[in-house]
């Protein structure tokens, strides 16, 4: 690996831009994602920034149990993100539908059958530290050496 590539990798893994999309949650997980931005957890110290624009994003946080209104739309958002990219689901809802996946409800979990998911963070809601850890682990596996692995 030449020095230029090393610098590129180092810079890339210190500059993760996050977009989040709520596909039908109770807002509990949204609040925990919000808490990551606050000084108590302060995600910018790890080089993670929230932009909420898929064209600028590296990581997509998916929150919620996938309501019918998101059919096709979520895949569209996912396709707009330029590679390298990764999607992380936050909370129980995108994994199992949590308490909403009952008889007669219209939600369609898990989200991973609609778009490829790199990591899942269980919990209702998960702690901000758990969300952060997931983003950091994805950073290390997906973004650290992307060009070498995708020639």
């Amino acid at each position: 690996m030449n020095i230029l590539q090393r610098i590129k990798n180092a810079v890339r893994s210190r500059s993760i831009h996050v977009a989040y999309v709520d596909v039908g949650s109770c807002n509990g997980c949204d609040i925990e994602v919000l808490a990551c931005l606050a000084p108590r957890y302060d995600i910018e110290q790890y080089g993670i920034y929230v932009h909420n624009n898929p064209r600028e994003a590296d990581v997509l946080l998916v929150i919620g149990a996938y309501t019918p209104g998101w059919e096709e739309k979520l895949a569209m958002v996912w396709e707009k993100i330029p590679a390298p990219k990764a999607a992380i689901t936050i909370g129980n809802c995108p994994i199992s539908g949590c308490l909403f996946d009952r008889k007669g409800s219209f939600v369609d979990p898990p989200v991973k059958k609609h778009i490829p998911i790199a990591a899942e963070v269980p919990g209702c809601p998960p702690r901000p530290t758990e969300i952060l850890q997931a983003i950091l682990s994805v950073r290390d596996t997906v973004f650290a050496n992307w060009e070498e692995e995708h020639p």
């Binding site: 129980n92 994994i95 199992s96 949590c98 308490l99 899942e120 269980p122 919990g123 209702c124």
Partner: peptide, 8 residues
């Protein structure tokens, strides 16, 4: 306990 279902 099944993570992804348990709400703690």
């Amino acid at each position: 306990i099944h993570k992804g279902h348990c709400i703690r």
